[in-house]
Design a protein around this nucleic acid. Structure first.
Lengths: 198, 198
DNA sequence: CAACTAAGCTACAGTTGTGTATCTAATTCT
DNA sequence: AGAATTAGATACACAACTGTAGCTTAGTTG
């Protein structure tokens, strides 16, 4: 699609995708704080001038990369299986969190310099996702169908799964496995909505 | 103890405390990634040479500052009030998390460059604390006294409170208030240990 | 094929941070 | 009081990154 044909010079879309990828890789390696135009350019094997033609600083590049990253897959609650659907929702969250985009967002959220700029353009796209559309989608689905009282859909309950996954990742530095996701659902979410095991 | 007397030049302990404070202030403002000897020195109003005499790079200074920061207050479970003690434990956690040391640790944990070095010397002092000694202390206390079955002390239950506080802080950027702490205890922790309201 | 666009290359001056070194003078110790 | 420390004030060469600018040339478009 891009390599191997006679061309020696990338342009447009292709080049930009390479730069986006470079920005995400770079932030993963050095963190948002040490992100530089130079580093991104070097990694993308393109001159800095190409970057400056489009963006004014490294965080701009990163935000643009995030904006163009694949959207997060949404959980699609299915066949009357609340427990299974919750686990699946958390699985999707983990998958996203360890994607280049997810890791970049994590970095941005704790960076004093860029946390503010995040609010502007990206809240719609990235924040909405991060805010907890994973288990919340599933929980709302089953509450509407009367599997448990809708009054239990408080912020605590809606955040529970994502919060525990996040803490695991921070503590352990690696994604939780199937067993841990099941633990979270069985020992925290289900009890909190009054379904202590079934 | 230090200001106002005739002295014009800080030495030893006093100077070091100023440098530690500068490092913590600096990391709060620019993040771990942009921490520099220069920045710390400027903020502490001391020449860089003074820093290099003791530390070899900015992260060393920061780790040393953390090591010498006040230890976290531990929750002391008291008069047969599980709910109140849990809320108090979370209150202590929030207090620590928003202290200079807490903010610095948060920054370090998500910085690719310094996350590794953290493991070495500081795991004992700072990690142990962060790992969740807040609600865990309280929960173990009451489990031992038979207020609820000890089998429910799983990692999920022990992390629940801290996880939800952390998520609140990341999402909202501000400390949770009393109402939120109560929500966490009432809607997540107590149900998870089988005490759904009383 | 000609004209245009935009990537690639190189250079440059300016800024910030790095380590090191040297000298001075304030504070402490004996 | 005199000696030993050690903070404070420079200064320096080096490196990385910044923006900007000029030029060349590959690729696209009419």
């Amino acid at each position: 699609m891009s390599d191997g044909d006679g061309r020696t010079r990338r342009r447009g879309e292709e080049l930009i995708r390479a730069i986006h990828a470079a920005a995400l890789a770079e932030v993963r390696e050095v963190g948002v704080g040490r992100l530089t135009m130079d580093g991104i350019a070097r990694r993308a094997a393109t001159p800095r001038s190409t970057l400056y033609r489009r963006w004014s600083d490294p965080v701009e590049v990163l935000l643009d990369a995030l904006y163009h990253s694949h959207p997060v897959e949404e959980p699609t609650p299915g066949a009357d299986d609340l427990r299974g659907d919750l686990i699946q929702a958390l699985r999707l969250m983990v998958e996203w969190a360890f994607s280049p985009a997810g890791l970049a967002v994590a970095g941005i959220l704790t960076d004093p310099g860029s946390a503010a700029r995040m609010s502007e353009a990206l809240q719609e796209k990235v924040f909405a996702v991060r805010g907890g559309t994973f288990t919340a989608t599933v929980l709302r689905h089953y509450a509407e169908r009367g599997h448990f009282p809708a009054e239990r859909l408080t912020w605590v309950v809606l955040d529970l799964g994502e919060a525990l996954v996040t803490k695991w990742v921070i503590d352990k530095g690696c994604p939780p496995g199937e067993a841990e996701l099941a633990d979270i659902v069985d020992q925290a979410i289900l009890p909190a909505i009054g379904l202590s095991g079934g």
